[in-house]
Structures are given as structure tokens and as C-alpha cells.
Computed example of a mutant assay.
Amino acid sequence: MADWIRGHWSIENKVHWVRDVTYDEDRSQICTANRPEVMAALRNAAIGALRLTGVTDIAAANRHHARDSTRPLALLGIT
């Protein structure tokens, strides 16, 4: 049971907390149709892509990639 609880909080800390704090998801005004789910999926994809490359500071990585439009494409292997 303790392993399950630790696993649950690991997911909470790695994904949900990042979405809440870094992307300020709780204050998002996107609220019609399926748009909230689409945005959550896009945020999860961005977090996953960054984590696959070894990034631990998602906020810093977002700032880094936002400075040059070719960086996100290079991260995804699209150049």
C-alpha cells in the first residue's frame, strides 16, 4: 500500500504540480468544449518531451526554448 501511495504522489509531483505551477493551469480561462483536455494533453506532451531529454527544470527549459523558435523543433527532431 505504501508503494502505491508513493507512486501516486510521484505522478502528482512530476506532472500535475508542474502543470499547476509552471503552466498556471488552475487559472486557465480555456473552458469550453474539449479545449481544456486538449491543452492538458499538449502540456503533458511538452513536459514528457523535455523529461525524455533529461530536463529537470521545466520552467527554465520552457524559457530556453521560447527564445528561439527552432529549439522546440530540434528537441523533437524536426529540423
Results as ranks from 00 to 15, higher is better:
E12C: 06
Q29G: 14
L42F: 15
W17P: 01
I58H: 11
L73R: 10
D57K: 05
A74N: 12
S10K: 10
A59S: 11
D68G: 02
M39E: 03
A2R: 15
A45Y: 10
I30K: 12
E12Y: 12
H65Y: 15
I47L: 11
R6Q: 11
H65D: 14
D20C: 01
T32K: 13
A59W: 09
H16L: 12
D57T: 11
A74I: 15
D26Y: 07
I5Y: 04
A74R: 15
S69R: 15
V38N: 09
W9F: 02
H65N: 13
R51P: 01
M1C: 10
C31V: 08
L50T: 04
T53W: 12
T56K: 10
M39V: 03
D57H: 11
R19N: 04
A46I: 09
H64I: 07
I11W: 06
V18F: 10
E25T: 06
I30T: 15
V55Q: 05
S69V: 15
P36S: 12
R19L: 04
I47V: 14
G48C: 06
L73K: 01
T79D: 13
A60M: 09
I78C: 06
R71D: 10
V38G: 07
A33Y: 11
V38A: 14
L50N: 02
D57C: 09
A49Y: 03
T56Y: 10
A41H: 03
T79Y: 12
L42K: 04
D68E: 13
D20P: 01
A40L: 08
R43E: 02
R27W: 05
R63G: 04
W17E: 02
S10P: 03
L50Y: 11
R27F: 08
H8R: 00
A41Q: 03
H8C: 00
I30D: 08
L52V: 00
I58N: 00
N62G: 06
M1E: 03
V38R: 14
R63W: 05
A2C: 11
T22N: 04
R27G: 05
K14S: 06
S69W: 14
I11T: 08
T22Q: 05
V38D: 02
V21M: 05
I78M: 00
I30E: 12
N62Y: 08
R51F: 00
G54L: 06
R43S: 00
I5G: 00
T32D: 13
G54S: 06
I58V: 15
V15F: 01
M39G: 02
G7L: 06
I58A: 02
P72E: 04
I78R: 10
A61T: 10
N13Y: 11
S28W: 01
M1L: 09
T32G: 11
S69E: 15
V18N: 05
G48S: 13
P72K: 05
V21Y: 09
H16F: 14
S28H: 09
P36I: 12
L76H: 07
R71N: 11
T70S: 15
L75W: 13
T70I: 10
W4T: 00
R43P: 01
D24T: 04
I5H: 03
D20F: 01
A49I: 05
V55Y: 05
E12M: 03
G7N: 06
L75H: 07
A33V: 09
I58G: 01
R43C: 02
